[in-house]
Nucleic acid binder design. Sequence first.
RNA 1: CUUGGAGUAGCUCAGAGGUGGAGCACCCGGCUCUCAACCGGGAGGGCGCGAGUUCGAUCCUCGCCUCCAAGUCCA
Length: 511
Amino acid sequence: MTDRPAAASFDDDGGVLGGLEPNQVRVRFPPSPTGLLTVGNIRSALFNWAFARHYGGKLVLRIEDTDQSRNTPEALQYTLESLRWLGLNWDEGPEVGGEFGPYLQSERMDLYADVVTKLLDAGKAYHCYCSQEELDQRREAARTAGQHSGYDGHCRNLTEEQIQAYVDEGRRPVVRLRMPDRPIVFDDLVRGEITFLPENLGDYVLVRANGYPLYPLVNPVDDALMEITHVLRGEDLLPSTPRQIALYEALAEIGIGNGRTPRFGHLPFVMGEGNKKLSKRDPGSGLGEYMERGFLPEGLLNYLALLGWSIAEDRDVFTMDEMIEAFDIRKVNANAARFDPKKCEAINAAHMRLLPADEFAQRMIPFLAKAGVLPVEPSADQLAVLRAAVPLVQERMNTLSESVDMLGFLFVDEAAFALDPDAAAKVLTGDAGAVLEASAKALTDVEWTTEAIEAALREALIDGLGLKPKNAFGPVRVAISGRRISPPLFESLELLGREKSLHRLNQARAE
RNA sequence: CUUGGAGUAGCUCAGAGGUGGAGCACCCGGCUCUCAACCGGGAGGGCGCGAGUUCGAUCCUCGCCUCCAAGUCCA
């Protein structure tokens, strides 16, 4: 993971910065460690990261683990590892530190309690004694009457006596924010001006009756305390933005944070199959699958960047450095984006071809090792073969895991070598035996170079047996690689070596 | 139901008031020892629907439809 250059020009920030210096930009990525990172999460992280790097600002990683029942330490660790694998480095947060810590919300409970007390004292928030049943009833009534079903303000202005009566009943109150009685308007960085009318903004709960602080409280409080300047997040949070802005304003009035409301930008949804928001449980949504299949981080990120953004009209393959340079939140499309596995793979394939040969070889090793084709630390000879094979396969693979099928035959023991039954059934038929026999004979004494091998086989099979190239080389390919699809044949033979090649030709004849 | 968001080729995205574009995917051809890569060609939408403004609208206005999200003591 390397730091990217903060190369960018700010000639025209189009008001995105809102008067800040570029390097004052502070954005955050706030995952809750409830499980695997999804491609949707990663897209959000990527856009925040690109935004911060573009301006030379800071990316804060904050862990939203207030709901302990859903968190696990493993999930947190997994989240951090995933971000590292992707190369989305953070400037402040777990394992990195920073002056606005702690960065785990579970370690900030005292702060929240303090804020709530101040909000209550200042009259910005109040206790609500309504029971769940009462709320449900009134909400249902409002809904059937065709009205907004938010909180109706029942406990907004209770008298001392009423409060005492509730307390005497043994009721435990929640804390609600007193929403202002005026429209809340904000200029979304992706969608432009958005207005919410007060009648649709009920006072919402900040703290549960059991004293537990909720997301609508802790998220804005931390953003304020951490002096976040821009909030880029999923569109699903758009409806809650006016409430956060109201909280922000209340915090500013009681002197919490720097008094500055961040700018918001709501990123389009990432949809899965059938136009539904991609959920954690959908196949193809978890990062783990992409890691296992051998996607390159740069390939995955490149594709994810395309979900709502484009670097140029006629271009879709680019590096992260290029993205940083070009990223402009105002150019993010507001339409929901559909995750297309095919295009994701195609973009990844393009990055595969961009890799320097040595690095390509290095990146294949873990996959070959996992499949038992190579040891975790290959020998010098094995490495040499692997490197020599790179030019043969680099253009034929879309993901690193394909290296197992593509190159396995070069490394596997003769005892463990086996023909793909389907390939054998289709290709090793009829006069294949004669082809293999003639091939073995032709290769027995030939100089062991690609050119000489090719010449010898052409002479023996095309000229000698009068076969079409396809029928001549097909059986040889299956015999030595075990598959119908392999790297180029003559190069493969050279890499395999004479001894193994002859052995496999003879073995195949016997079958 | 209420509020908010969105509706341009199969998918992702551009586009500008004046006869709709790219990439991926797809099809065909070339190259070739297979599969790719690469090169060349092709098919595919009239811009959700209906009005209005305009000489002219996919782009402006209004209404509608559809999809998505939010609404809760989840995040």
